[in-house]
């Protein structure tokens, strides 16, 4: 009865080679090398390498060249339009998305399940379809456009307002789908405790329910905002696409590309990518901070 050599890693079950075993805890389950290898190769080829090409192209301009390409009135106006209107649309969605989530969770009414399923339509409907449908609706001769024109003299399609409409459509599910599950899991005892302590319904909403939902609301708002900034298909049909007035950043990138200004397109794209990552980072930090405060 001789003890097996204790240092011979290969004799032990499932240790995945010497290099991997430094990074990974041993496990009897097979397939780590195969799946990890495929995952990294696929991720690298499809996502990371092309994104690196973007960075390389933008870096080719040099520091001064980059800012020259980006700090033009047209580009700045496009950023203002994209970010401003996305913010507006996300705000509209924060309000109405919250109401929709509340109604779906708290009240029972005929057709509630259908309404619930329909909320995901903007995720499923191709953006080009949404784009032409919205522009047909809000065009001066469309169902809604006509009414707005006749009653208020308001022109929506082919103005910045049209962009906001499209971005509202595209961001609609985010707030609903982030607030809904949290509201669903909210323990009813908290509101009952508030009521038994003498709070009115509004007070208990304002001081007990809303603070619990706020992180989710903010998350949904930020997701809708981030989605709006990058949106292209649903916007270009309704926007009018006037440089400096209703031209969004993604469209400007496409236009630069069509004019074979590859470096310029790469520079604007890089800036936009950096902006959305920054946004995501802030969002994650905010969530982490709120979770630490409201840890249940």
């Amino acid at each position: 009865m001789v003890a097996a050599s204790s240092t011979d890693d290969a004799a032990l079950p499932s240790s995945g080679g010497t290099v991997l075993s430094v990074l990974k805890k041993p496990s009897v389950i097979p397939g780590f090398g195969l799946t990890m290898g495929f995952t990294l190769a696929y991720l690298g080829l499809i996502v990371l390498l092309p994104l690196a090409a973007l960075a390389v192209k933008a870096a080719g301009l040099g520091w001064a060249g980059f800012w020259n390409a980006v700090l033009t009135p047209r580009v700045l106006a496009a950023f203002e339009i994209s970010f401003g209107l996305s913010l507006l649309a996300a705000a509209i969605n924060a309000v109405f998305g919250f109401v929709v989530a509340w109604v779906l969770v708290r009240y029972r009414f005929p057709g509630a399940k259908i309404v619930d399923a329909l909320v995901d339509l903007p995720f499923a409907l191709p953006t080009a379809v949404a784009g032409i449908a919205l522009s047909a609706l809000y065009a001066p001769n469309g169902w809604i456009g006509q009414l707005l024109m006749d009653w208020f003299g308001l022109k929506v399609a082919f103005t910045p307002l049209g962009i906001a409409i499209a971005l509202t459509f595209i961001g609609l599910p985010f707030v609903v789908r982030t607030v809904q599950p949290i509201l669903q899991d909210l323990p009813p005892e908290e509101e009952e405790a508030a009521a038994s302590l003498g709070a009115t319904r509004w007070q208990s909403f304002r001081r007990v329910v809303f603070p619990s939902l706020f992180p989710a609301l903010l998350t949904g708002f930020a997701l809708a905002f981030a989605r709006g900034v990058g949106e292209y298909g649903s916007v270009i049909f309704i926007a009018g696409n006037m440089p400096g007035v209703s031209e969004i950043v993604p469209l400007l990138i496409v236009i630069k590309l069509e004019q074979y200004d590859y470096a310029g397109a790469a520079a604007v794209a890089t800036l936009m990518l950096a902006a959305s990552f920054l946004l995501l980072l802030i969002l994650n930090l905010l969530q982490a901070w709120m979770r630490s405060r409201h840890a249940r």
């Binding site: 996502v47 994104l51 973007l54 953006t127 981030a226 900034v229 990058g230 949106e231 292209y232 298909g233 950043v249 993604p250 469209l251 990138i253 496409v254 794209a269 936009m272 990518l273 959305s276 990552f277 995501l280």
Partner: peptide
Amino acid sequence: PFSVSPVI
């Protein structure tokens, strides 16, 4: 890829 604009 979810946080990258389709155009990009």
